[in-house]
Structure formats: C-alpha cells, structure tokens
Design a protein around this nucleic acid. Structure first.
Lengths: 205, 205, 205, 205
DNA sequence: TATGAATGAGATTTCATTCAT
DNA sequence: CATGAATGAAATCTCATTCAT
C-alpha cells in the first residue's frame, strides 16, 4: 500500500530539487525522471504533464498559505478596529503565521514564488498581491473615513501590497533560519505599517 | 545612406518586441527574424548570438543608467552631509533622474530588468541592488556615528536597497506615463527615507 | 524479444556505414537517422550525442584491442628475454593476434583509426603509438645494457613505434582478406625487427 | 603597385595560420578574413573559393616539391646503376633535397600533407606515394633481373613507398629544426634501404 | 501499473557563397 | 577593387508528450 506512494514521493522530491535549481522552464522531465529512477512515461502516470508535476510539488503548500491568509483576513476585518494603533501587534501575529507557513514548506514555496515562470503558476505572486491589496483597500477605506479631505492613494496601496508580499519572498530567499527570519521581518513590517499610515492617504484633488 | 541601417534597426525593434512579450528564454530567433523579414543567418551577421542580440537592445540604456547612478552617488557622497534632513530633497533629484532615464528607454529597460532571465544579463537587478547597497552602507556608517550603542541592521540595509530598486522596476512596469510616474514615486521614496532613518540602526546586542 | 534491439542495431549499422564513407566530422546525424529510418530525436534516445554514437560503434572493438595489446606486452616483458633472436617469432604471435582482432571488427577499427577526426577518439592512434613506444623503450633499455658506448636513439624509437602502428592501419586499409593480410604483414614486421636491432642504438656523443 | 599584393599576402598568411591550427574543413573563411582585416567578399576577389585559398597557400611549395622529386628520379633512373651499394649515398642526396624543400615551406607543406582533409588536395599524400612507388617499381625490376626465381613483393613495394613519404611527414611534424631533421632522417632512410633490399623480392610461388 | 521506444517540432548556430553597389 | 549585407541550407541537439505493450 505505502509502497505505491514511494515512487510518487521520490518523483516529487526529485522534481522539487530540479525546479529549485533550474526553474520550471529549464527543468527537464527527462532528468527529473532519471533522478527519480523511472521513465518519462511514468511521470505521466503520476501527473498529467509538466505543469501537473509542479502542481504536485506546490499545490498543498499553496492552499495552506492561501487559506491561512484568507482566514486571518476575515478575522482581521470582522474585528472591531477602533484604533489603528493595534495594527503593529496584528502584524506580529500575521508575520508569525506567515513565517511558520513559509518555512514549513520553504522549498516548494520558493519554487512557487520565484521559479514558476513558464508554468500556469507564474502569476501567483500577483494573485497574492491582489489578495493583500483587496484586504488593505477595505482597511484603508475605514481609515479614510476619519480624514475628510483625504483619499486613498491607489498606486501606493498597490505598491505596498506588492512590497509586503515581496518582503516575505525576499525573506525566505535570503534567510534559511525561521527564528532569525522572524527577527528580521519585524522591523520590516513595522516600517511598512508606519509607511502605510503616513502615506496611504493623499490630499483629495 | 540611412537605408544601410534599416534592416539592423528593424531587427532590433522586432527583437525588442519579442523579448518584451516572451522574455529572453522563450523568445525565438526564428520568429524574430521572420518578423524582421530576414533569415536567421542574417541575425548572425548583425549580432554574435542571441545574447548579443539582447545586448544590442539593452546595452546603451544600461550604460546610461549605470553611469548616471554612479555619477550621482559620487556627488552625493563627496558632498558635505551635515544633516540627513536634506536626504528627502536629494532623493527628489535622484528620482527625477531615474525616471527620465527609465522612461527614455522604457521597453529596453523593462526587458533588462524583468525579462532577461536566461541571458548574461539575468543578474543585473542584483548588481544594481549591490550598487545601491554599497552606497547606502557608506551613508549608514556616517549616520551610525551619531548614535553610540546602535549598529547597522544589515538585513534591513540589504532589503531596503532591494526595495528601492524594485520600486523603480514596479513603477515602469505599472505606470506608462513618466509625469504620473514622478508623482507616484515621490511618496514611495519619502516612505523609504523615513523607514531608512527609523530602522536602519538597531540596538547593539 | 530480439525485436527490441532491431532499431538500435539498424542505427549503429547505418552510423558505421556513414562514418566509414564520410568520416566522423562530415557524417550527418540527419542522414544516418534517415538511413536507419528514424528521426534524429530517436538517435538521442539511444546515444548521448554524435560522439556517443561513434562510441557505440567503436568502443567494444577498441577495448578488445587495447586489452589484448596490454596483455601481450605484460607477458612479453615478464618473460625471460635471454636473446633478441626470439623477437621475430614473438612478433609472429603478436601479428597473428593483431590481425585476428583487427579483421574481426575491420570497419569499426578503420573508422576509429582513420576516420575519427573531430571526435573524442581522434588521438587514439597517438595513444597506441605511445603504448608501443613505452613497451619498446623498456625493451631497448635491456638491449642497450649489452652495448656500452651506445645509447637509445629516441627519435628512431618514436618513429618505429609510429611505423609499427601504421603498418597495421595500412594493412586493414589496403587488404580486405585476413589470410593474405597475415602473409603481407610478416615481412613487414621482420623488416621492422631488423631495423630496430640495427638502428635503435646510436653512438653516445 | 606592391601595395596591391599586401592585402593578398596578409590574407594568405592568415589562411595559412588558420589552416594549420584547425585543418581545412574546420577552418572558417569568416575568421580568416576577419584576421586578415577584410570582408569575406574580398576573399572571393583574390581566390575562387575556399579550396582556391588553400591552393594559394600550398600550390607553389607543392609544385617545387613535385618537380624536384621528379627531376631527381629522372637523373636517378637514367644513371647507370651498376650496383645497389650506391643507393645509400643517393638517398643522402635525396634526403638533403627533401629536407631543404620541406623546411623552406614547412607550414604550407604541413597543411598540405596533414591538414588538407576535405579539400581537393586531400589525396595528395597518396599521389606522392604513387610517384615514389612507380619509381621504386622501375628500380625493383632492375634489381629483380639479377635474381631469377624471385619476384617483386607488390604489397611491400607499396608499403615501403608509403613509409618513405610518411617518414618525411613525421619528420616535419615532430622536428622543427632542419639540421637536426637531417640527422634524424639518415638512419631512417638507411633502414628503409636495407629493408628494401632484404624484402622487396619474394620467392616466386 | 509502468515501460521504453519514438515522434515531431522546435531550438540556436555555422557556413561557404553570392551580388548589387 | 572591394564591400557588406544577406542567403539558404544544413548542422547538432533538446524537449514535452504519446502510446502500444
């Protein structure tokens, strides 16, 4: 029973290695299947195609990540946000969750976020950015309500979402140790919150 | 007279288009030369190889960019930096210069910065980050001198250089109009300067 | 059962033919695969590359040849060489062995020895010459011991090794029948032995 | 006036260099003309084609060599060969002539004899062998007249012609200095003469 | 369940040669 | 006298994918 999965897991492990080293486009199914000690034909038994093989590597971590973010956001928004002072603390929670998720599946997520060009996942970073962006937009609207004569700076909003995601991408790319990563990311997130509050609104007209 | 360069320019224009659409790796010399109405052999009369063709597209803009940055930095450092308050204004100059350079050759630089994976230029963004990082490190050391008991946060320094470059990459990617671009980038740079001053130093030990 | 190797053997047979006719460099994988009734891609399923295809043709005969020579030499040297008069007879054994090996795989060895320019095998004749040369040098040193005031003529030693190898190359090139070949090679080898004994030593200074 | 030949001579010198390094087949007209600082088109002004360029390099030395050999042979045969004892001395003359000719145009002749595969000159060594062979055959017939019951060993005759030519090819390949070359070739030629006399005739059936 | 042979289309690159100017 | 642009065909090699067995 378990044996049936052995080959599949070997395949996925080898695929992960190759994708990480060469990126999706340059990865070769031949060399992956050779490394996994099977034929190219076998790959097509386990997965639909090359893109499906990438899916086998990244789908689960991706789902976990998306779910966790969305769950966090729904709590975040439904909570009564009396003051934005609490944001920093919230971000600490968010950072801890993200780092725990990211480092549990670091290789797969590195592939997904940085090495998936050419696959159906190549726009995934933009999707994440959009997710963050939508959430932050809701937040910004509440914030703006307190400042008549101000309006949301859309470019800033988009760019900050972009930077927030890339802060995590940069982190898992450059820092292998999750504990140090948590220490590194905190001032980064603080800076982003401060920047958010200082610049997310601009003068109307 | 001008006719002599016609074909070459047609080739480079078509190459630019293809690189922009597909990226270096997936760009096809066949389809480039077909679009430029010549044989693949002819491409090799004009350029050494595929990488050389990319060079023909990006080398000049790249040189201009690097020279301008380096020149700016040497002025910047040699100037007497009595107070860091002036930094914001300095950044305005830098931003204007960058935007003018970036938008004069937007397509070529988009290719260089975002679509050059697989070519000899693929590390260029990291090179630029390093350039900024070295400059900022020198700045940070002067800054740190005024705060005993503090030391430079190396991760923050590197990440901020990274973000600074990517702010410009993001800008030319998402904003086609240089005047609007200048307006968009200003609060971004302000935010980075504020973040820099607030977080570039950390408590020693 | 045997059918599984059919295509591979067809390929190797066609490659042998083409290499023999055109030499390695001018041989075309396209025309080889066309002759073998398969696509060029299929060639790369069976072999690593063009050089590997040549290997598939010549490796086995080459190994046999090298092993046989080396084995003969180790017997030859370890034997008690009381008198050099026996050399002629020894050479008969050597000649018989060589001819039997050479004519068992005549086409492959013709390719290897005369048509492999441009491949990784192109220095193989020199390697064989060196092998013979080293062996003959050891022999010459024993011989020289009996003649004080004489020393080994290095150029002659090298040239004779060269001629010995080329005598066999010439033989398989010009004589298709192994029995006649054996008859032809005998006086040639006799002449080389006589020449060796008469000229391998020169007056010291 | 002389200037007109400057470019041509530069071209030929560069061609000589490239042919020597890469051999005729792998030599590239592009790289030759680039080295000679002219366009590929210009090559076709000076020479008919690639083969003609090789001709420009080797024709003159080749003619000199052929003429000298033929002249020597006609003297040799017309002379009254009472005894074959004189042959050794004759060979000394021949050797001196050959070395003088070969080393006057060493590079060109090296190309001709060893690097002309793929060109119209690729059979030149065989032509020279045939020239020698025909001459030696005439000699052998005179020799045979003195030994009834013997006949010419055709294979030996051909092989010895082959070896004689290759002795010179080997010489210019391995020995750069003409004086040392003359010293090296003498025992080689002696050996060949002795071998000739001992083995050129075989028992008639 | 898995194999291994094979495809077919594509990739980049090189080359001798030509010819209008 | 010489150029420089261009051709066109061929070269080797790589790849994801398929399918009979």
């Amino acid at each position: 029973m378990e044996k049936e999965n052995e080959a599949r897991e070997r395949l996925i492990a080898c695929a992960k290695k190759e994708f990480l080293e060469k990126g999706f486009s340059k990865a070769s199914l031949r060399s992956i299947s050779a490394a996994a000690d099977m034929t190219t034909g076998a790959v097509y038994f386990f997965c639909k195609d090359k893109n499906g093989l990438l899916g086998a590597v990244v789908d689960e971590p991706l789902q976990k990540l998306m779910n966790a973010i969305q769950e966090h956001f729904s709590e975040d928004l439904s909570a009564d946000i009396a003051s934005f002072q609490h944001k920093a603390g919230d971000h600490d929670d968010f950072a801890e969750m993200m780092i725990s998720l990211l480092y549990d599946n670091r290789d797969a997520l590195l592939i997904l976020l940085e090495k998936s060009a050419g696959s159906s996942y190549e726009g995934i970073v933009d999707d994440l950015v959009e997710l963050i962006e939508r959430h932050n937009y809701a937040l910004a609207e509440k914030y703006a309500a307190a400042f008549p004569g101000k309006r949301i700076n859309d470019y800033m909003l988009h760019w900050l979402a972009h930077v927030e995601i890339n802060a995590y991408v940069h982190l898992i790319t450059h820092e292998a140790d999750p504990e140090r990563a948590l220490k590194e990311i905190k001032p980064v997130m603080d800076m982003l919150v401060e920047g958010w509050m200082a610049h997310i609104l601009e003068d109307a007209d």
